[in-house]
Every structure is written in structure tokens, then in C-alpha cells.
């Protein structure tokens, strides 16, 4: 009985959350509408309806999906590449002092050079093809993931490690069976942060050097003064980012919720 009540409370919580999101977005669009129609009254700031209509048209023509998929594919590739490098490096920095001494200057150096500043170099090195964008996303992902992974390793409780040692664990077992699982929530949090950086980076990169993607769509729309297209791209970015971040949070909860009641 108690269990049933808890379950249904969780479901009601979830419904409330979703209801809240819908109401929040509705309010946002309402304010946008009011601001555009009654306040700004300019063709440079279209109200939501024409923008949504234009968006629907672009979807029917298959154009919007194409741009979205182009951008998301780059994000996914760079993000996975960056995480695949960042996680082991972060683990090594957190676990071994010499590696920390050696690599910390690197991370501390590069994390202050934003990916946006690397666009020009990246275009010179890789051209305006896929490689330059994937490189930039990987770049923006790596350092965030490294830093939060290394911090996670450092935060593993001393008693957890000692307990394993006096149960007979060797160095590798301490690493693989204690330090690593204890660090998972930190890794996932780092990846979540990196994901939002990736959205910033991909738009900037596509604005400057690309043949497709949402950033390119923004750029073209500006050139041809298609103001509705600009807003379609902006709304698409916001919604995509929101959806991605929610899914990430959902994953973190699913995988790491039991690690810590406060996640």
C-alpha cells in the first residue's frame, strides 16, 4: 500500500512537471506574441504564429529536418569523441599524481581558449568539411569532461578506498570497482555541461564555415533578410537543447539515481 502510494506520487510529480513545462512554454509564446504585436510592432520581430507557420512549411519541404540532422550529427560525433578521450584522461589525472602534474597545465591552458576562438585554426587545418566541426565539438567537450571526471575521482571518500583495501583489493580493483563507479555521477554531470557547450559551439562554427546545419540556416536567413527563418532556427535550437538536456538528466537519474538520493 505504502509502495503503491509512493509510485502514484512519483507519477503525479512527473505529470506536474510536464504540465509545468507546457504552461511555461505557453507563457513564453504569449509574452513573445504580446511583445511583438503591441510593443515592438516591427517586421524585424515577427510574432510566434508566422514563425511557427514558416517552420511548418520548412518541415513539409524537408528542409528544417535536414539542417537539424546535420547539426545534431556533428554534435553527436564530436561529443562522443570528446567524451571517449576526456573520460580516461580525467580518470588518469584524478588517479595518478605524475599524470596530474603533467597534464594539469594542459587542461588549465586550453580550457581558457574557447572553442569559438579555435574556429579559424580549425578551418585552416580541416577545411569547411565535417572534420572541422567535429574537431571543435570534441574540443569543447574534452576539457569539461576531463575536469569534472578528475574532480570526481578526487572526491571518492577515503573510507570507501580503505574499506576495499582491507577487504583485500589490489590497486586495480580499487580503481575499477570503487573509484570508477563512485565517479560515474561526476562523469555524467560533466558530459551534460559539455553538451550545452556543444550547442554554443556548433552554431558558431556553422555560422562561419559550413554548407548546412542550423547555424548556416541562421546565416543565410540574415543574408536574404528572411526574418522568419532566423526565428525558426532559434526556436529549433532552444527546443533541441531543452530536449537533449532533459534526456541527459533522465539518463543521469536512471543510471546514478541510486548512487545518491540527492542527484
Amino acid at each position: 500500500m505504502a509502495l503503491f502510494m509512493m509510485r502514484s506520487t512519483v507519477r503525479i510529480d512527473r505529470l506536474t512537471t510536464i504540465g509545468g513545462y507546457i504552461a511555461g512554454f505557453a507563457l513564453l509564446f504569449l509574452i513573445w506574441h504580446l511583445a511583438a504585436v503591441y510593443l515592438v510592432k516591427s517586421t524585424l520581430f515577427p510574432p510566434p504564429m508566422p514563425v511557427l507557420e514558416r517552420g511548418w512549411m520548412l518541415i513539409e519541404d524537408g528542409i528544417l529536418q535536414e539542417q537539424i540532422i546535420a547539426s545534431l550529427r556533428r554534435i553527436a560525433q564530436g561529443f562522443l569523441l570528446g567524451s571517449a578521450i576526456g573520460i580516461p584522461v580525467g580518470l588518469a589525472i584524478g588517479s595518478f599524481k605524475p599524470v596530474r602534474w603533467l597534464l594539469e597545465p594542459w587542461t588549465e591552458f586550453f580550457r581558457f581558449i574557447p572553442a569559438v576562438a579555435m574556429i579559424t585554426v580549425s578551418v585552416i587545418w580541416f577545411g569547411i568539411g565535417e572534420e572541422s566541426k567535429v574537431f571543435l565539438i570534441a574540443y569543447t567537450t574534452i576539457f569539461v569532461v576531463i575536469i569534472s571526471t578528475a574532480a570526481g575521482v578526487g572526491a571518492v571518500g577515503r573510507d570507501k578506498i580503505r574499506a576495499a583495501q582491507c577487504l583485500g583489493a589490489n590497486r586495480w580493483q580499487v580503481f575499477g570497482l570503487v573509484a570508477l563507479p563512485a565517479t560515474v555521477p561526476y562523469i555524467l554531470t560533466g558530459m551534460r555541461l559539455a553538451m550545452s557547450n556543444a550547442f554554443v559551439t556548433i552554431v558558431a562554427a556553422e555560422l562561419i564555415a559550413s554548407n548546412d546545419g542550423l547555424g548556416k540556416m541562421l546565416w543565410d536567413a540574415r543574408l536574404f533578410m528572411q526574418i522568419e527563418d532566423i526565428f525558426v532556427a532559434l526556436v529549433a535550437l532552444g527546443l533541441l537543447g531543452f530536449a537533449t538536456d532533459r534526456s541527459f538528466r533522465f539518463l543521469i537519474r536512471a543510471f546514478a539515481g541510486r548512487f545518491n538520493a540527492t542527484v
Binding site: 571518500g157 570507501k160 574499506a163 563512485a182 541510486r258 545518491n260
Partner: peptide, 13 residues
């Protein structure tokens, strides 16, 4: 075998 003062030594996962 060691039993620690706090219970941070248990593996949450």
C-alpha cells in the same frame, strides 16, 4: 576487517 565510524565506507551503487 575494519568497521568504520561513519557509514561513508559503504558502496552506494
Amino acid at each position: 576487517g575494519v568497521v568504520f565510524q561513519g557509514h561513508d565506507s559503504l558502496y552506494d551503487w
